[in-house]
């Protein structure tokens, strides 16, 4: 309990990942889905940092920088799509965009 190791970080990261995954799968609001994706990317960063510390290797931290870059780009484009969807449907519900449903 009082000795924090890499396993603790992995467990926390897994919990955050699963919470984000559940958010992506069950929420109907696109804004919340995008936030859940950010949670998932954050949990990945936590893993990278934990292993960087464990292996005393900076590569993990450098890759976390790239993950943050990707997260920023993803947020910008995702929110642009959200605005386009809102202009088209006057709603941010994902269920309103079903044209491609088979």
């Amino acid at each position: 309990m009082l000795e924090i190791g890499t396993t603790h970080y992995l467990a926390l990261s897994a919990v955050l990942f699963v919470i984000g995954l559940v958010g992506v799968l069950v929420r109907r609001n696109l804004i919340t889905v995008l936030m859940s994706i950010e949670l998932i990317l954050n949990s990945v960063n936590l893993n990278l940092i934990a292993f960087s510390y464990q292996r005393a290797d900076l590569t993990g931290q450098v890759f976390a920088v790239f993950t943050i870059t990707v997260a920023a780009g993803e947020a910008a484009v995702g929110l642009g799509i959200l605005l386009a969807l809102f202009r088209l449907r006057q709603t941010t519900e994902l269920d309103s965009a079903t044209e491609l449903r088979g």
Partner: peptide, 29 residues
């Protein structure tokens, strides 16, 4: 999570996390 980065000797990443996530992405949202 940024605080957890600090605890794992990723000080730069922690500050970047605060700036980019806490500042940029959050304002966008």
């Amino acid at each position: 999570v940024a605080a957890l980065f600090f605890l794992r000797h990723a000080e730069f990443l922690g500050v970047v996390q605060m700036f980019v996530y806490g500042g940029g992405i959050m304002v966008l949202f």
